[in-house]
């Protein structure tokens, strides 16, 4: 649905996106993660033809965004952080205005979308009277108007309260389930991304540092909690035997790839260590993300 090939964007001397190659398969909920300034919004801007790439190609819905922007965006809906509207006009008038930038949209379609997002009672009130949650619903309504196949959500949970975030999560799942949309979700809410997305990519200083499925993230051998009387000596032994890659110095060890947990137990017991507890902890997206971000080198520019 989206294909980025060796995409690059430079603002002056700053390289905002560096050689990014990425593919968002149709029918997936794809998470785009990264710290502030990692290049997520710039990448989304390039997907929507709002930011011109310095190098590389962006294809959306099978069309090159740089040369065939109108075709590429015909079936795309987008929601940005802090959605902006014409506050002095009604929600309905806002939807009419925005829909006409895509194609002529019948009133029945607008009403259908308004009903779907649950804004029926207030759609004729001025947007300035809307709560944050209602603005989020209006943003969703405008994104759904062109009957999109692809929905791009840039920090949609920003500024929402916990109920709002939970509602947003349910809505995204509903969109995926009922309308079969492909969804690209850029977010800082790692728990939400973990619950919603099947696939993620992590950007750091404009570079892709991970691209894989959530199942890959969970399957990545993570931390193992070790309870023993002499933790430093046990860690030294495991390092010597080349079974672990890292340790937090107090409680956790990181196993090397393909090392089973029972190999740790066997090695420690054979060396005379008293092991009172040893259990593997499934890695969360947050663990994975933080490790990834902390391990990545600082930007060259």
């Amino acid at each position: 649905m989206i294909t980025l090939t060796h995409l690059q964007k430079q603002f002056g001397h700053r390289l905002a996106v560096k050689d990014l190659t990425l593919s968002v398969p149709a029918g997936e909920i794809f998470g785009l993660l990264g710290h502030n300034g990692a290049g997520k919004s710039t990448t989304i801007g390039m997907m929507l033809g709002q930011v011109w790439p310095t190098a590389g190609h962006v294809r959306v819905c099978g069309h090159d965004v740089t040369t065939q922007r109108a075709r590429a965006l015909r079936q795309v809906g987008a929601i940005f952080e802090a959605p902006a509207f014409y506050d002095y006009l009604s929600g309905w008038r806002n939807l009419e205005i925005l829909s006409h930038y895509t194609a002529s949209t019948p009133k029945s379609r607008i009403q259908e979308v308004v009903d779907w997002v649950g804004l029926t009672g207030r759609v004729h009130s001025p947007v300035r009277t809307y709560s944050h949650g209602m603005r989020a619903r209006l943003a969703l309504a405008q994104a759904l108007l062109p009957q999109p196949a692809l929905l791009i959500l840039d920090e949609p949970g920003s500024g929402l309260d916990p109920e709002g975030i939970a509602e947003m999560r349910q809505t995204i799942l509903r969109l995926h389930r009922e309308l079969g949309l492909t969804i690209l979700l850029s977010s800082h809410l790692l728990t939400e991304v973990e619950q919603l997305c099947s696939h993620i990519a992590v950007l750091q200083h404009g570079e892709k540092v991970f691209d894989g499925t959530i199942a890959d993230v969970r399957a990545t051998r993570g931390r193992v909690a070790l309870r023993t009387r002499n933790f430093p000596a046990a860690v030294a032994l495991l390092r010597e035997k080349n079974l672990i890659s890292d340790s937090d110095g107090k409680e956790y060890i990181h196993l090397k790839a393909d090392v089973p947990v029972d190999a740790i137990a066997r090695a420690l017991v054979q060396a005379g260590h008293e092991v009172s507890g040893l259990w593997a902890r499934e890695q969360t997206l947050e663990d994975f993300y933080l490790q990834l971000v902390q391990a990545a080198p600082p930007p060259a520019n």
Partner: peptide, 18 residues
Amino acid sequence: EDGTLRMILARPISRHRL
């Protein structure tokens, strides 16, 4: 400044037309 231009330009209208 208001951010509405980003909403508009997420749609297939060309910049010249707009």
